[in-house]
Structure formats: structure tokens, C-alpha cells
């Protein structure tokens, strides 16, 4: 105990020596020193959980606007705490060339077995010769606002995260496949336990760590086999600060990924474009994958 305290004191001393004096530093800046010090003091409280972030913003909003003028507005709105991240995707159909590389990237990233693809590209010819055009429709999970799959799951194994992503707890799923039946976009698949092992050496060596869960080898009767699987916007990549594999790989840059709650994000701006539309928007599911026609 004593040793620990001594060590802590030593560390604090070193830190104090290294750190420059806050008041002195702030005095060098063109802005108000007292405001800076007070904000830093309260920010510590916010970090420690003793002060609500919203109260913090309320307290300093007026003085911040006075000090920094208009440019502060955007900043405070963003850190307001009221708005959470809502991940969404915009797919520009004019840019999509139908190369299917998003499908391949998804398969490689999530190591999906035969018969399962989190992301598919539907292809269709419209019109009659010579007036024809080809439409490619890349379809990941729509991560709906009111997901029908979540509505019907008897055991709450599938649910919506705060960031808008619809996930599955494969350790709870009983494999009744009601969600597959209820999904209007065909975005869900049942894992029958098939494998590429015959064509691809080492396919069974590792299961993709979906939702950050390391499952090790892919073996018969072992979760996620016997349960339902789906696109999760590459949640494991998002947590590392990377975009979903399909977005990153898209050769035509047709896919955009971002926060739909942030009005200044690229996806928000594109989602408000007159070209934007949603699939089966009459159903009330509220998809968060938006297409540009």
C-alpha cells in the first residue's frame, strides 16, 4: 500500500515537471484564460462522471459564443450528446458497374460459408432492345429503423444496437428462422454448416470474429452453425475505425458510409439528394441503406 502511494507520488512529480503550467500556456493564446481553466476543471468532472455533458454545454455555451463567435455553433451542436451515431450507407447506382467485388470482399472479410452472402448484387435488364439499360442493385442488410426481424424474434437474439446496426447474438439464436421469413429484403441466411474446405485449404481454421467474438475453428454443430447470420456493417472493422469491407473495396466509389445523424456527413447530404430512394419504403421498416438512382 505504502509502496504504491510512493510510486504514485513519484509519477505525479514526474508528470508535474513535464507538464507546462496551464495558466501560463493559456495566457499565450489570444483567448480568455479564465474560461479555459474553468472549462478544463469542469471537463475533468464530466470525464469522472460527476457532471452531465449537457449541463456542461449549457453552462459554457453563452461564453463560448461570445469568445469564438459563429464558428463555435457547429461544434457545440455536434458534441451535444443528444445525437447518437446512426450508421448508414448510400449506394450510387449510376456509379455501380456490377463488378461484384463488394460481394467478394464481404465473403473474404466475414468468411461466409457456401450459400451465405451478407451482400449480394442483383442484376436486371430493363427495357427492350435497343432501348435497354442494365441495373445493378447491391444489397447489404438495410439495418432498418423498425426491423421486422427484430420484431418477430422469439428470444430477442437479434436486436438493434444504439448505433443503428442490427445484430444477432448467435449464442442465443434458436434457429427458428422466423426472421428470415419476416425480412422483406432477403438479407438473412441460415448457416447450414456447409464449408469451402474442399476447395479452399484452411477455410475451417477460423471463424470470422463477428461482433468481436473469437469463435476459433469452424466445426460441425458449433455456433454459428445452426443459427441465422447477416450483414453487420462490418462492426468489427468500425470499431477499429475502418469502413465496411464492401465500401472500402468498391472500385467505382459507389458506396458511401457514415453517420446519418450528422447533417454534415457525406451520407446525410447524399441521402437528402433528389436522386435518393429506399427499397420497399412502403413497408414501414425504414431502411438505412439509401440508393441514388
Amino acid at each position: 500500500m505504502l509502496l504504491k502511494q510512493l510510486l504514485e507520488d513519484d509519477f505525479n512529480q514526474i508528470v508535474d515537471e513535464r507538464l507546462s503550467d496551464a495558466a501560463e500556456e493559456l495566457a499565450n493564446s489570444p483567448y480568455d484564460t479564465d474560461l479555459g481553466l474553468n472549462m478544463a476543471q469542469d471537463a475533468k468532472k464530466v470525464v469522472a462522471g460527476k457532471l452531465d455533458i449537457q449541463t456542461f454545454h449549457k453552462k459554457y455555451h453563452a461564453s463560448l459564443v461570445k469568445e469564438f463567435g459563429q464558428q463555435v455553433r457547429q461544434g457545440t451542436q455536434e458534441d451535444n450528446g443528444k445525437t447518437k451515431v446512426k450508421w448508414g450507407m448510400v449506394i450510387d447506382l449510376r456509379k455501380c458497374v456490377g463488378c461484384d467485388s463488394c460481394m467478394v470482399a464481404c465473403k473474404a472479410e466475414n468468411r461466409t460459408p457456401p450459400g451465405i452472402s451478407y451482400n449480394v448484387v442483383l442484376e436486371k435488364e430493363v427495357g427492350e432492345f435497343p432501348h435497354i439499360s442494365k441495373v445493378n442493385l447491391p444489397m447489404p442488410c438495410m439495418h432498418c429503423d423498425n426491423p421486422p426481424c427484430v420484431q418477430v424474434c422469439p428470444v430477442r437474439a437479434t436486436f438493434k444496437l444504439d448505433n443503428g446496426i442490427v445484430t444477432i447474438d448467435n449464442d442465443r439464436c434458436i434457429g427458428c428462422r422466423y426472421c428470415i421469413v419476416a425480412c422483406p429484403y432477403g438479407a438473412r441466411s441460415y448457416d447450414f454448416g456447409e464449408s469451402y474446405e474442399d476447395e479452399m485449404l484452411g477455410f475451417n481454421d477460423v471463424t470470422s470474429p463477428e461482433y468481436g467474438i473469437e469463435r476459433g475453428k469452424r466445426e460441425p454443430r458449433k455456433t454459428p452453425i445452426g443459427t441465422v447470420r447477416k450483414c453487420n456493417f462490418c462492426l468489427h472493422r468500425l470499431e477499429r475505425g475502418e469502413e465496411p469491407a464492401c465500401v472500402e473495396t468498391c472500385i467505382g466509389d459507389a458506396r458511401f458510409f457514415g453517420d446519418l445523424n450528422d447533417p454534415n456527413s457525406t451520407v446525410s447530404k447524399l441521402a437528402n439528394s433528389p436522386r435518393a430512394f429506399k427499397l420497399k419504403s412502403d413497408l414501414g421498416a425504414g431502411p438505412n441503406v439509401i440508393y441514388l438512382r
Binding site: 420484431q151 418477430v152 424474434c153 422469439p154 428470444v155 430477442r156 437474439a157 442465443r172 439464436c173 434458436i174 434457429g175 427458428c176 428462422r177 422466423y178 441460415y190 448457416d191 445452426g226 443459427t227 441465422v228
Partner: peptide, 23 residues
Amino acid sequence: MDLGRPERALSALVHWNVTSILA
């Protein structure tokens, strides 16, 4: 027979999603 995970059948009685008709 139809459940993908028959051994978890009884968990349907433990976890209850009130919006699910099946539950």
C-alpha cells in the same frame, strides 16, 4: 425437429420478446 438449435428450445420460454407472436 425444425429448430436449427433444438438444444436451445427451452430458452424460448426464458427470454421473451413481447412483440414476437412466436414467443
